Computed example of a mutant assay.
Amino acid sequence: MPVTSYSFCETNMTKISTLEIDSYDGTQLQIQIDAFARLLHACVQSGASISFVQPFTINAAKDFWHQKVLPGVLDGSRILLIAKIEGQLAGCVQLDCDTPPNQPHRAEVAKLLVHPAFRRKGIARALMLALEDAARQRQRRLITLDTRTGDHAEPLYRTLGYQTVGTIPEYAKDPFTDTFDATTIMYKLIT
C-alpha cells in the first residue's frame, strides 16, 4: 500500500497521472534491482553529482544497490522510499538511520534521484516530504544532507525549510570533468 498518492498534470496539461510514494523493503529492492540500476545510471548520465564519475556502467549501478543500499534496507538502518508514476519507477530517496549511539535523534538524506524523464513534476518534493514523515515515525528529528553547491536540488531543500550550515570547497569530483565541486551542508529540525 502506498505511503501517499496524488494526481498531477503532465507538462502538456492534458494527461492526469498518479504519483505514488511507497517504502520498499529488501525483497522488493532485490526484485527490482535492474530498475533501480537504470534509474541511478540515467541520473549520473544526465550530470547528477551523486558520488559517481564517468565512465559509469549499468553494472556499477547494480553493484551500488547490492553492496551499499541493500544491506542497510535489509537490517532496517536505511529506509528506501520510491516514487512511481503509472507503475513506472520515477525516483527514490533514502533515509540513513545508521547513526552512532549518541545520535539516535538524527538521520541523513542519501541519493535523492528523479529520472530525467520525470523531472519538474514535484516528485523530488513529494519524496522529501515522505522522507520527513518516515523520519518522524523513527523519532528522528534532525535531518542532515549535502548537495552540490549551486545544483538544482539546493533551492528545493531551502523551500522545504532546510538551513545551510556552510559549504566545503572542492568536495567532490565533477561526474564528467576533472574539476572539483563544492558541497553545501544543510539540516532541518522536524517536529
Rank of each mutant, 00 (worst) to 15 (best):
M1Y: 12
T4K: 06
T4H: 04
T4C: 08
T11G: 03
N12L: 14
N12I: 03
T14R: 14
T27N: 14
Q28L: 13
L29Y: 01
Q30A: 15
I31W: 01
Q32R: 15
I33H: 06
A35H: 11
H41I: 09
Q45K: 11
S46Y: 00
S49E: 08
F52W: 10
F52L: 08
T57E: 13
A60C: 12
A60P: 05
Q67I: 14
L70K: 09
V73E: 05
I82R: 02
I85A: 05
E86A: 13
G87C: 09
Q94D: 00
L95P: 07
D98F: 00
P100T: 13
P101D: 12
H105N: 15
L112T: 05
F118C: 03
A124Y: 03
A126C: 07
A126S: 14
L127I: 07
L129C: 12
D133K: 13
R141F: 10
I143C: 08
L145K: 05
L145F: 05
D151L: 00
H152E: 03
E154P: 02
L156Y: 03
Y157N: 07
R158M: 04
R158W: 00
T159I: 10
G161I: 01
Y162M: 11
Q163L: 14
G166W: 10
D174G: 10
T179A: 13
A182W: 02
T183M: 02
Y187R: 04
T191E: 12
